[in-house]
């Protein structure tokens, strides 16, 4: 299967690929060169809407579409984990070792890098029967800014793409999880954040076991 990688990790040099005569490959480019680069928000919006449009062909249900978006976001999360840790100042360059650190990393570093601001909230689920659920809250997800969902698809939340990215980050740091996006903003007058979205992070049981074990020692 071919993997196109906007790769920042180490990928071994592949004989057989042609390079331009200048000999410059992507390995010569400094990683931090495009750190603060910016592009127009519309370019992202158009690409994203084409992506959603392409994914919505041949699907049978809304869950299917959200799953596809999730799958597309996953590899990005993996790459972002490596990249953002690399860019951290050396003393904090260790990967997150417990859930809270990981979630803080996502809430602050990942969000700041992708959207230019930290996420708006991080909460542990208040349901005692579900100790493995945490919630990251975003009042106005960038990806939903230009999308207005028609009435017949009102359960669709295109932030499933961002949920996939979060899932990639979690999986990459050895905290396997399932992440889904839910819109909780109400479409009524006086609602400050009608697009408010909650990303529900549900960790796998072995993670909770490990947390419990580490917490005790």
């Amino acid at each position: 299967m071919s993997n196109l990688q906007p790769a920042k990790g180490s990928s071994k040099d592949q004989p057989g690929l042609r390079y331009p005569t200048s000999g410059k490959t992507i390995y010569h480019r400094p990683l931090n060169r495009t750190k603060a680069a910016e592009l127009s928000g519309s370019s992202f919006a158009y690409l994203f809407s084409e992506m959603v449009g392409y994914a919505s062909k041949k699907i049978e249900s809304i869950q299917d579409l959200e799953k596809r978006l999730n799958v597309q976001g996953h590899p990005i999360g993996l790459k972002l984990l490596d990249l953002l840790l690399y860019r951290e100042p050396t003393r904090s360059q260790t990967r997150p070792l417990n859930i809270i650190t990981l979630l803080h990393f996502i809430k602050i570093n990942v969000w700041q890098h992708l959207f230019g601001r930290a996420a708006d909230g991080l909460e542990k689920s208040s349901d005692p029967s579900k100790p493995d659920e945490y919630m990251i809250i975003d009042n106005e997800p960038l990806v939903n800014r230009y999308i207005s969902v028609p009435k017949d698809m009102s359960q669709l939340n295109c932030a499933a793409y961002v949920a996939g990215i979060i899932e990639g980050v979690c999986d990459g740091s050895a905290f396997p999880a399932r992440v889904t996006a839910h819109s909780v903003g109400k479409q009524e007058e006086g609602e400050m954040w009608p697009g408010r979205t909650v990303f529900l992070v549900k960790f796998a049981p072995e993670v909770m076991e490990r947390e419990g074990y580490l917490g005790k020692s």
Binding site: S2, L39, S40, F44, L47, M51, I76, K79, L114, F115
Partner: peptide
Amino acid sequence: IDKVNAELVTLTYGTIVAQLC
């Protein structure tokens, strides 16, 4: 122009092409 992080766009395009392939 309201701006977004360039890497977000690059990564999104990358994932589109990867999915197509």
